[in-house]
Amino acid sequence: MKGKSNGRSQGLILEILKYAVLILGALVMAAPFLWMVSTSLTPDSVIISYRLIPTRVTLANYVKAWNFSRNFDESVSLGTFFLNSLIVSVCITGPALIIDSLAGYVLARRKIPGKDLLFYLALGTMMIPFYVIAIPLYLVVRRLGWLDSYQGMIVPFLASGFGIFMFKQFFQTIPQDLEDAARVDGCSAYRTYVSIMLPLAKPVTATMAIFKAMWSWNLFFWPLLIINNIKLKTLPLALTMFRGLNVTQWGMLCAGMTLATLPIVIVYLSMQNMFQKGIVMGSLKG
């Protein structure tokens, strides 16, 4: 009997320990965010005493951060960079979903010569690290005259082996009968794709959309190579301009980072399940 109650109290201790570890871990994970927000609310004049709970609160840093880039170009604010990121993100995600799903549909369903080869080529693209092709890609884009342009940031990413693979896998699970019925009714392949396959593919499309949107929103290395014009800079690229403030203006710097982080955090919190699904699905990439 004694052993049993011992076991129970031991279990209780373990339980408490578990929560302690989890909560401590969560605090460590959240600390940089909390510190960033509290610093962003602290006036830059009280520099040495940044703490988790600011003693004096100000929103002035946010105004300064929003207009920070006007030092370089009067017409450019943080809003410009948001807009650029949005343009790039939307213009990659939308067309890429169409292009990938079209190819995925053909590879899953249509009989064409060379299908296997085409599929392996698509898979092969996933094995090539972007950095390996960055230099020749730069030369290609330069030759096209697309340095410092939106299309330079968008067009190279309009198709992905990963997207094609995901859509192909999904379309293969749809019963053939559905499609045959449409074909008997005289639907063309495009009609079948638009009116039968795409509506069924809504869940994959949604997770892919999240995955791609997040990926393209955070693109950094490629824009860094090809964009010099401040009017075209995307948000991650523009944020590097804030680095210079790390000596004296931490409040303004943190305000800038908070502004940059907030939208994606809000989107994440409102669509958490989709995000996690997208991540798990994205992990199939290997």
């Binding site: 991650p236 980072m257 982080t261």
Partner: peptide, 19 residues
């Protein structure tokens, strides 16, 4: 909470961590 850093931009996170 544990997942939050994953969705934030690497650039923003790096800048905050450099502080």
């Amino acid at each position: 909470v544990y997942f939050l850093p994953v969705v934030t931009s690497m650039v923003a996170a790096s800048i905050v961590w450099s502080l």
